[in-house]
């Protein structure tokens, strides 16, 4: 706990605060995240319109619980990407800033005082479980690629539809997001202290370097993959409900 207190540095003069439009970023984040969350809950709860041969909505991939699960099958899977994203180091930064205002932007005065405990107490101490979500997310990446490959097969023949491209983009961006993860970077090589003296050290250093490069764009992968999964689900859903048709590019 925080116990120490100090005298205020500047009293009678009013310390200037930054004048730029710092609130734009957090505001956009809040809007996008809320809209996405509402859509995702709604889409997952539907339990219908998630499959049109050969496409499967990524929210529902893989389809589990057939025969014994009575609710929407999405609920059996969707907690994995949800947990992975909620414990993601990049997204933590973003929602601590935009939703909790801890701080809303750098060098701004905060209201909250000694009640702040960071990630040292429940529930935020659970952020340490990010790596377990990573392991599951890697499995999910494999499944999504399997489903994407299925999406190239129309009635036993090779083909490409617009939906194929949606699923392909989703799989690519999800892979980018998962494999640029900070925990993955630690796992493949970040945990070593001396590469040249460790078993497979040089090889792991090469992989670590590549992951590090991708890691610099982790935030881009986060948003791109979020939009891609959203778009893919929406496309499949519109297709399944019969609202639109699926233009074929090659078949």
């Amino acid at each position: 706990m925080i116990t120490q207190t100090r005298s205020p540095a500047v009293s009678s003069a009013v310390r200037p605060i930054r004048q730029d439009a710092w609130w734009v970023g957090p505001l956009i984040t809040v809007v996008v995240v809320v809209v996405f969350a509402v859509y995702a809950v709604w889409a997952a709860a539907q339990g219908t319109n998630y499959r049109v041969e050969p496409y499967l909505s990524p929210f529902y991939s893989p389809v589990l619980g057939e025969g014994w699960w009575t609710l929407s099958p999405a609920f059996l899977v969707i907690w994995i990407p949800l947990g992975f994203r909620l414990t993601c180091y990049y997204f933590r930064k973003t929602y601590y800033r935009s939703f909790f205002g801890d701080p809303p932007a750098c060098a701004l005065p905060e209201r909250r005082g000694a009640s702040y405990t960071g990630e040292s107490r429940f529930p935020f101490i659970l952020q340490n479980l990010h790596r377990y979500f990573l392991y599951l997310a890697i499995l999910l990446v494999v499944v999504h690629w399997y489903e994407t490959i299925q999406a190239f097969v129309f009635d036993g023949r090779f083909g490409i539809g617009l939906g194929t491209l949606f699923l392909l983009a989703e799989a690519v961006l999800l892979s980018g997001y998962v494999f640029s993860c900070h925990s993955f970077r630690h796992l493949v090589g970040g945990c070593l202290d001396c590469y040249s003296h460790s078993a497979l050290g040089r090889a792991r250093h090469r992989v670590w370097s590549r992951v590090s490069l991708m890691n610099e764009r982790h935030h881009l992968y986060f948003w791109a993959s979020l939009i891609a999964v959203w778009a893919a689900d929406l496309y499949v859903r519109l297709l399944a409900s019969g609202a639109i048709g699926d233009p074929r590019i090659i078949f």
């Binding site: 933590r92 930064k93 800033r97 750098c106 960071g118 790596r131 970040g190 945990c191 890691n215």
Partner: peptide, 30 residues
């Protein structure tokens, strides 16, 4: 654990050290 990786330190480091991504997060992982 008190660090909530909001990255203000990294944003204004004059030496452009990736304080959060290269130091704090790897330490949190350790």
């Amino acid at each position: 654990a008190y660090c909530n990786i909001t990255k203000c330190c990294e944003d204004l480091c004059p030496e452009e050290i990736h304080i959060t991504d290269n130091a704090i997060i790897p330490l949190k992982e350790r």
